[in-house]
Amino acid sequence: TKKDTKLYCICKTPYDESKFYIGCDRCQNWYHGRCVGILQSEAELIDEYVCPQCQST
């Protein structure tokens, strides 16, 4: 049987260590910077990140 692979981001793909991720400070989920429109250089300046799903609630 195929091992359950945890899926990340709004694009629902397995973790890829070569890509940049940003963690939501509300739901603790991880998102590709590219998918949520945040560059790694911008993320370093953000104190708290809230993902699109949490922003809409």
Rank of each mutant, 00 (worst) to 15 (best):
D4L: 06
I22F: 03
G37E: 06
H32P: 00
Y21S: 08
T13P: 02
I10C: 06
T57D: 09
I22D: 01
C9W: 00
P14W: 04
P52S: 15
C27A: 00
T5Y: 13
V50G: 02
L39G: 09
D47V: 09
N29K: 09
E48D: 07
V50M: 08
Q40Y: 05
Y21N: 09
I46N: 10
C24Y: 01
K3G: 09
K6Y: 07
K19Q: 10
I38E: 04
L7V: 11
W30T: 15
Q40N: 05
R34C: 04
V50F: 10
K6V: 08
D16I: 03
E48W: 05
K12C: 10
L39A: 05
Q28L: 09
L39S: 13
V50A: 06
Y8Q: 15
R34M: 06
L39R: 12
Y49T: 04
L7R: 08
Q53N: 15
P14H: 06
C9P: 02
Q28R: 11
D25Y: 10
Y31R: 02
C24K: 02
Q53T: 15
Y8M: 14
I38T: 09
C27E: 02
L39W: 05
Q55W: 06
G23R: 09
L7D: 14
D4F: 06
G37N: 08
E17A: 12
S41D: 11
G37V: 02
Q53I: 15
E17N: 08
C27P: 00
C24R: 03
V50Q: 07
T1D: 11
Q40E: 12
C54P: 03
V36C: 03
D4T: 09
D47F: 07
G37M: 05
K12Y: 09
K12L: 09
E17Y: 05
D4S: 13
C24V: 01
D47R: 12
D16Y: 02
E42V: 06
I10Y: 06
K6G: 11
G23D: 10
I22R: 04
E48V: 13
L45S: 11
I22W: 03
K19N: 15
T13A: 05
E42R: 04
C35M: 01
R26Y: 10
D4Y: 08
G37Y: 04
W30Q: 15
I10M: 06
Q40L: 05
V36I: 10
D16G: 03
